[in-house]
Design a protein around this nucleic acid. Structure first.
Lengths: 137, 137
DNA sequence: CTGGCGCTTGAACCTTGGTTCAAGTCAAGT
DNA sequence: ACTTGACTTGAACCAAGGTTCAAGCGCCAG
């Protein structure tokens, strides 16, 4: 059995965070020995799962839902995962654009980047995608 | 000349955010007419630049630095941009992994994902990459 | 018995990026 | 003159995801 400190070291997640997650119902309350938490190796996988879910862009609230419905309601679970895949794909596209724009910023010969047509196109693109209504001309 | 409301509509950035950015020295204080801010079309590009920098993952603090050194110190400016490109590339790799893992989660035949070798490999990978020291066996 | 380490708790605090609110000002229209 | 609508300010508030702190407990070594 691991203490919380050992679990923290093994998983790379601070003790403060592990307790925080338990308070937030993301981890089942650990067994106690003399008031102290004791973990099995399984907990390592649980903690790892939480970090991976975070990497995938789930908020803690979403993760709680996913976990709750993991075994209980496979249909709903798949929906949540599929929805998140769409989010991730969107983020990927945005990040790729950002990367291209950064790399262009290094190449760009315009002395002021706000005059660069490529930059202006990107702004324009973003603005139209984000609730702009008036002044469209 | 645009009022702040018109600029907000044109750029897709709320008035509250525009004022916030000005307070944070990310926008030069607008000219005033009877106490009210008045903007030229240039401001539209400035606001757009801010949003694009955010998309690229710069924090507001970083953006302030980048802007401050844009004309003043081209060398330093390139460094900041190059450093951010590295960050973005890292984020891209992580997101791709997350995406693959999500898609695998939908396919996976293991009834509990924490038993799936692919999941365990991902956890292991993440843990070793994140300051793990003890219990490496 | 005393240190000291690692654990416990709840509460307070932190950072980032804003949003909302109260109270007031300004310009235009009728 | 009065109303209306958009604007002004500083201050308070929000959400997420933690971190830090004070005060105290359990247990082992010396």
């Amino acid at each position: 059995m691991l203490t919380i400190g050992q679990l923290a070291t093994a998983s790379g997640v601070p003790t403060s965070t592990i307790r925080f997650w338990e308070r937030r119902d993301l981890l089942v309350p650990a067994a106690r020995s003399g008031g102290q938490r004791r973990y099995t190796e399984d907990a390592l996988a649980q903690v790892g799962l939480l970090r991976l879910c975070q990497d995938a862009g789930f908020t803690l609230t979403e993760i709680r839902q996913v976990l709750a419905q993991r075994a209980a309601d496979p249909t709903r679970w798949r929906e949540l995962v599929e929805a998140k895949m769409v989010d991730v794909a969107t983020s990927l596209r945005k990040l790729r654009k950002a990367y291209d724009l950064l790399s262009h910023a290094l190449e760009c010969t315009h002395d002021d980047i706000v005059k660069c047509p490529r930059f202006q196109a990107a702004v324009e693109n973003r603005a139209t995608a984000t609730g702009r209504t008036a002044l469209a001309g």
